[in-house]
């Protein structure tokens, strides 16, 4: 589904992502792990078009996406979240979701004025769907609250909901459970699993290794910009290179 060939990106002299190639087939939930600064987030930025690649190609569903603008990639069904939670603080939780609905007729200026009926119908459908997703996230009672006033964990959930609303074929989650409490982590994991069962590919960056082992079917490991290993979670934990990559950093106290 997602095919990455020889992708390279450097900043100044620093190789952030160095000749990375791999392929994601229909494997449900896939993890991307590695020490801090190993290039995981940069790779996400490259896949989703937020950074331009120096070299290499990326294909999604057999279409080349490298070089396309982020919004074009998103419209193809490849939708991401950000490492730092980015809800739209001065929009309500409901609006946060409704805004994410793809291909809205009402986002065209002419339709706003000349096809009000169609826009209204779409809005009603989107509102209904957004409320369903809020229900799934157990946020239904907060629909009119400003997103910026929600707790950090609720914002994380809302962000996931927003990605759902965009009707993705594949989602990239950048540290979805970072900084939230164990109860919410369970809730988030449940949602992620539900998505995977519905046939949405999940690709996530995660530092919580037990969690990765629990939910991912396959794991890719990066270190210093290179892909050093791929396999099942249990293979990953036993691989000497992976262990070295993590321990090597710990020697420096990172």
């Amino acid at each position: 589904m997602l095919k990455i060939d020889n992708v390279t990106k450097s900043f100044g002299g620093l190789m952030a992502v160095n000749d990375v190639s791999f392929q994601l087939d229909d494997t449900g939930i896939t993890g991307l792990v590695g020490p801090n600064g190993s290039g995981k987030t940069t790779l996400f930025h490259l896949i989703t078009g937020f950074y331009k690649l120096d070299r290499g190609q990326i294909h999604f569903k057999d279409k080349r996406i490298s070089g396309l603008a982020p919004h074009v990639i998103s419209r193809m069904g490849l939708v991401r979240t950000f490492q730092q939670t980015r809800v739209l603080p001065f929009l309500s939780a409901l609006e946060n979701l409704m805004a994410a609905s793809p291909g809205q007729t009402g986002e065209r200026l002419s339709s706003v004025f000349f096809q009000p009926g169609r826009v209204k119908l779409e809005e009603n459908n989107n509102r209904e769907r957004a409320m369903q997703i809020l229900g799934l996230l157990k946020l239904k009672s907060l629909d009119q609250h400003l997103a910026g006033r929600l707790s950090f964990g609720q914002q994380k959930l809302l962000e996931l909901g927003r990605v759902l609303m965009a009707r993705p074929k594949m989602i990239l989650l950048d540290e979805p459970t970072a900084g939230i409490n164990p109860t919410l982590i369970r809730q988030l994991v449940d949602v992620i699993r539900k998505l995977a069962r519905k046939g949405i590919q999940v690709f996530l960056i995660e530092h919580n290794m037990p969690l990765v082992a629990e939910i991912c079917e396959k794991v890719f490991v990066m270190d210093s910009g290179s892909l050093i290993f791929s396999g099942t979670p249990s293979e990953t934990r036993q691989n000497p290179r992976v262990i070295e990559a993590y321990l090597g950093r710990e020697d420096y106290g990172a």
């Binding site: 078009g49 937020f50 998103s74 980015r86 739209l88 793809p102 965009a166």
Partner: peptide
């Protein structure tokens, strides 16, 4: 408003 609040989010959600 999405663009105002966060341009990157707008792009990530498929909005130009």
């Amino acid at each position: 408003k999405v663009v105002r609040e966060d341009e990157y989010v707008a792009q990530a959600l498929g909005k130009n």
